[in-house]
């Protein structure tokens, strides 16, 4: 394994992240603070946002020094986590069953395909009506679209497994249960993790919708409330925080995936006899 060169410089991935994000902030600064283009001049500029965000005594009551900020983050993260875990357990389970059993697929796929296009926001009234607390309602809204994304990707993952592995497993003496755990699950894992990354993104999107309408606290609620108070600096802080949390949570899913799929990362480099 001596073929890998390890150079202790900034890796291109980190470099790319820094350049693209700084570039975006710079563009934002130029549009809002330097050129002051019509309509853009109404937007809070990055200097105003960052100085408020980092200020111990923020003018609009929101910064990394205020307790409410962390409370909102905590609520949002908690809701996403609950919804995501639920979507993963139920979605992967259902997707594997659908891919595994033809009969189960025939009965469940039409229903899944009918419910899947309904946007999370459309579920809000019924969720609020049926579920005992608003909290559960928000979690349900966050869960629902992420769940369908997970189901579909898991199903496609099972379908994409080469028939030859099923044959190899069966002539080595596998029972159906062995095939399930040794072929279906690991074979679908790459697609499952692609699905989970998508699901994580969808969960954040739906969360904000749910919190805006049915929530108490949370970043979506914060944005909605500051909209009524016309505090745009706080809204941008909320948006940026959502972006960072979304990025971080997707990265965590990716990391977990890489850890569970060691075989994916280890391809043969040089020639061997």
């Amino acid at each position: 394994m001596g073929l890998h060169m390890k150079r202790w410089t900034v890796n291109p991935e980190t470099w790319g992240a820094v350049v693209s994000i700084l570039g975006f902030v710079l563009l934002w600064y130029i549009l809002t603070a330097v050129l002051k283009l019509p309509r853009f001049d109404k937007l809070p500029n990055p200097v105003a946002v960052f100085s408020a965000w980092l200020s111990p005594h923020p003018q609009f009551g929101l910064s990394i020094f205020t307790r409410g900020y962390y409370l909102d983050i905590l609520y949002s993260v908690g809701r996403v986590l609950a919804a995501f875990v639920l979507a993963t357990v139920l979605g992967v389970g259902l997707g594997l069953l659908m891919g595994w059993s033809r009969v189960f697929f025939d009965y469940s796929f039409p229903l899944v395909e009918t419910l899947r296009p309904i946007p999370p926001i459309a579920w809000i009234p019924l969720a609020v009506l049926v579920l005992p607390t608003a909290e559960l309602g928000v979690i349900f809204i966050t869960f629902i679209a992420a769940f369908f994304a997970t189901v579909l990707n898991t199903l496609l993952g099972v379908r994409s497994i080469d028939e030859v592995y099923f044959r190899a497993a069966s002539c080595l003496g596998s029972r159906p249960r062995d095939v399930f755990w040794n072929v279906v699950v690991p074979g679908a894992l790459p697609a499952i993790f692609t699905g989970l990354q998508v699901a994580m993104g969808i969960a954040w999107i739906s969360l904000v919708a749910g919190e805006m309408i049915a929530g108490q606290r949370g970043l979506g609620y914060l944005i909605y409330e500051d909209y009524s108070n016309l505090q745009f600096v706080n809204i941008v802080i909320g948006m940026a925080t959502l972006g960072l949390l979304g990025y971080g949570s997707s990265a965590l899913v990716r990391m977990l995936g890489r850890r569970l799929m060691a075989w994916e990362g280890r391809r043969r480099g040089g020639a061997m006899a």
């Binding site: 044959r167 002539c171 040794n182 690991p186």
Partner: peptide
């Protein structure tokens, strides 16, 4: 049905990519 008294070695290879060499051989 297929059984371990007649094992197939496939044209394009069918080692489980997600198992190590040891796990593959020990699988049967």
């Amino acid at each position: 049905g297929p059984g371990a008294e007649r094992i197939v070695v496939f044209q394009n290879g069918a080692l489980f990519p997600w198992k190590t060499v040891l796990e593959n051989i020990a699988y049967g």
